[in-house]
Amino acid sequence: MTNLLRVLARHLIQGVLTLLGITVLSFLLGHIAPGDPAYAILGSDGVTVPTEEQVQVVRESLGLDRSVVEQYFLWLGQLFRGNIGVSFMTNRLIEQELLARIPVTVQLSLLAITFLVLTSLPLGLFLALHKDSLLDHLFLGLTSLFSAVPGFLVALVLILIFAEGLRLLPTSGLNGPTSLILPALAISLGSMTQITRVLRAELLAAFGTEYFQSARAKGFPFRFAAVKHALPNAMSSVLTLWGNYFIAILGGSAVAESIFALPGLGQWVLKSINSHDYPAIQAYVLVMGVLCLMIFLVVDLLQLAIQPRLRRAS
């Protein structure tokens, strides 16, 4: 099992380096981007026209008058002391915001990935088994359609049908488990079709392998052999895709959260970016970075689980 340790060690080291890298990058980008948090804060009510002196005062209080490098290291130092910062805009502890918002985004993303897996898996299998059938052709056509439609449009259409029309689900807000269904669906619909296609292709490739032939030679019906022998091998690529999509979903939840009024990380970071709330943006990048790294790790571990040949050191 030495490969397992290797995998873990690699993830740890790469992880730390990645986190450092992304936080530096986002810090730089935030400071380079046009716009000024001092002006954003002072002008947030849409009434006050800040004077240059006022702006200066605010800049000093936020530490913006120091060099970018100095600011970054201050932030880093603060981080190591366990303080993730205070929001420029609301003056509240970012920790509080995160604790409230992370569960929302994570739950939403988990539900979305669950939809993704629960549909792409059986559907991919079904289509591979019924290649060239009417359903297969229909689906392949639909794939292009869904991939082209932007996420927010899907969201609005779903709301129109299920919330306004059928009144089955709430249009927005966070009131219990049903609130996440439409947003999760909106997020996952586009990827659903793509991943199903990949799985279908991988399965078809697996059907042509010699080990699959040998399985059939033992008298296993096609479907049985498809699930037991073809599927685990086909899953390898799909697993990585799922992991990537999970990350995309985590990041892309911002649009869905805005439309569906879900107070998650995405909505928060959009607000923070608009108001140049540097500490908030940094915290977001950090949290997302950690979440992504965790997902990569899980995917790698799952790969080890389903592909035994990865377990032995090469």
Partner: peptide, 14 residues
Amino acid sequence: GWVAQNPASSLNPV
């Protein structure tokens, strides 16, 4: 019963 060519590829590595 069938014993295929290429045992390396005929045995499912999973």
